[in-house]
Amino acid sequence: MRLSGTVEETFHQPDDVGFLDRLLRGEQQAYVDLVNRYQGAMRAVATAIVGRKHMDDVVQEAWLAIVRGLAGFQGRSSLKTWILTITANAAKCRYGQNRRDAVLDDLPASFGGAGEERFSTGGRWSGVPQPWHEDTPEALLREEQLRECLEQALRELSDAQSSVLLLRERQGLELEDIAQLLDISLTNTRVLLHRARLSVFAAVERYQSAGSM
């Protein structure tokens, strides 16, 4: 398994050096922070490549490789990039024969249509949906219900769509980095993200109009 990162990230954690020092000193809280910081992204990468069935095994194997390789981390990429590359390599090496490629067979040739104007060609929102800023108990309850609605919509996406969406929206990775990590084309990545966003946006609109899924 390769331990060196190959994906160039567009942003770096400013405390990578200090954080790495804490890890190398064996600070227990640093390892807790490491898991909290990157576990979600690792699970998303593993799920996109091998599916949910083997995701936990891949992440566990990746953590072992990460811990063993920390002393050899040379900082040529960010710590996050290095960790996600190890995770992707673990998935591809261990489950190469069972790999779930993020193909476009279930998608139409044209993925335009209603809602396309909400996203730019770079995969960003053309206009960010307006959040709620009320603090009343009723408003807070609605926010919790909306959060549940979003989580349900994510669970209903394909593994590839949900993983690309989480890596882009929650982890802030650029589309080029996601494509390289998952070993899929940039066009494929854009389509998966677009379809995932449309599905989630449709679920939110149904909730806001009817008050439920």
Rank of each mutant, 00 (worst) to 15 (best):
M1N: 12
R2C: 02
L3T: 13
G5L: 02
G5Y: 03
T6E: 15
F11S: 10
F11M: 04
H12C: 08
Q13V: 02
P14L: 09
G18C: 00
L20E: 04
L23P: 06
L23A: 02
R25L: 11
Y31N: 04
L34N: 03
R37K: 14
Y38C: 06
G40Q: 09
A48R: 07
A48S: 04
A48E: 03
V50C: 14
H54Y: 11
M55E: 05
M55Q: 15
M55A: 11
D56V: 14
V59F: 03
L64A: 14
I66E: 04
V67Y: 10
G69F: 08
L70F: 04
F73D: 03
R76I: 08
L79N: 06
K80L: 07
W82C: 06
L84K: 01
L84N: 03
I86L: 11
T87I: 04
K92V: 01
Y95L: 03
Q97R: 14
Q97S: 13
R99G: 02
D106L: 08
P108W: 04
A109R: 14
A109V: 10
S110Y: 03
S110F: 11
G115E: 02
E117I: 06
F119G: 00
F119L: 10
G122N: 14
G127Y: 02
G127S: 09
V128Y: 12
P131A: 14
P131D: 11
E134K: 07
E134R: 06
E138W: 05
A139D: 02
L140G: 08
L140P: 01
R142Q: 07
L146K: 14
L146A: 12
A153Y: 00
A153C: 01
L154P: 01
L154I: 03
E156I: 01
L157I: 01
L157Y: 03
V164Y: 05
V164P: 04
L166P: 02
R168H: 14
E169M: 11
R170F: 09
Q171T: 13
L175Q: 06
E176I: 09
E176Q: 11
A179S: 09
I184S: 00
L186C: 08
L186F: 12
N188S: 15
N188M: 10
N188W: 10
R190G: 09
R190W: 07
R190N: 08
L192G: 07
L193I: 01
R195F: 12
V200D: 02
A203F: 08
E205S: 14
R206I: 07
R206A: 05
Q208P: 07
A210N: 14
S212K: 08
M213R: 05
M213E: 13
